[in-house]
Write a protein that binds this DNA or RNA. Sequence first.
DNA 1: TTAGATATTGAACATGTGTTCATTAAAATA
DNA 2: TATTTTAATGAACACATGTTCAATATCTAA
Lengths: 189, 189
Amino acid sequence: MSANDLRVIKTKQALHNALLTLLSEKPLENITIAEICRVAKVNRGTFYLHYEQKEGLFEEYFQEIMEDLNNSYEEPYRAVTTMDKNQIDPNTIRIFHHIERFKMFYRIVFSKNVPLTYYYMLFDGIFSLLKRDITIHKEIHDEISIEYYSAYQANAIIGLIIQWYRQDFEDSVSTLNKQLAAILRIGEK
Amino acid sequence: MSANDLRVIKTKQALHNALLTLLSEKPLENITIAEICRVAKVNRGTFYLHYEQKEGLFEEYFQEIMEDLNNSYEEPYRAVTTMDKNQIDPNTIRIFHHIERFKMFYRIVFSKNVPLTYYYMLFDGIFSLLKRDITIHKEIHDEISIEYYSAYQANAIIGLIIQWYRQDFEDSVSTLNKQLAAILRIGEK
DNA sequence: TTAGATATTGAACATGTGTTCATTAAAATA
DNA sequence: TATTTTAATGAACACATGTTCAATATCTAA
């Protein structure tokens, strides 16, 4: 199953388009593999040649979105990790922009009947951004594991996003940034 | 479908037992509704009279576990919310004990092919514990939304638990408590 | 204890899942 | 272009899903 083979590319493209079409009509949970294949005019057996579940297909899109997240952070993500109020600049906190940009996707990611996989993809994305930055500015006391610390910070931010999602992303990005900045400031007063 | 009806109670009990039996053999994702019904000697149509998915059945167990979590916190959960290092007492942080006590369940909750529902049940459980406590000790600056703040703190703790889970809960409860205490101390130095 | 209420059953049906295998079609390469 | 390689197909299989409905068994309340 060579990834360069034109046949493979064509098949995957058809499946991608079919999934997008169906996603505009109903949630991922109500979409069946048989349905995707019917729309894509691809044999169901062929689907299983490339993916195990419909989730695997969705995952391919998610990968691209995760790249956007990484690209948003060419500069280190100082705000959370240094815990220094002088360095907190909400404008450098671009993650909320990223979520808002792809909110149609994140509505799926955070819906309760979807598998945890996507949550972990987001978690791992933020986790590595933070971990990289924490490693660079290692002002952290020895007794703290960088792994635990990164996991704590990464998931805390996702906590804000969950709260945001539950109001259907009604608040503005700047509101989220302000909330985060204010929360970080508490620890310093 | 009266909840007091002996027939209902018997049916649900049989389904519960069947699920537990099967869970000791294989992960939830590989268990089918048909299988549960075969083991429970309950008609498959009867299953659908009470639940929509096998996940709904699992959820009933989870409710009981969430009650344990709540019972662990008769006293307010001061450690995280007050952000005062003098009040941080790892022994009052009982959540990690709770997770360890039910780690066979949490291995399922955090596995990647399981729906987000359970994650949210845990999140909501911790969220309300924190929110209740934050409301009591409202030393929080006005500009912060209690909702966002609680979501942030609750999910941060779950972040630690995810990291813990990913090493199959090898670290001790006291290690987790120390990590949390140390992380909270950073914001104050 | 009996009569009425209702939960459970078994059967059937259309559809989805996941897999197999020989056949066919389309691509790579020589 | 001709040959080789391999992806895609269609058919078939056993099994799961989700639903319906009349018949039955079992509970509750009078």
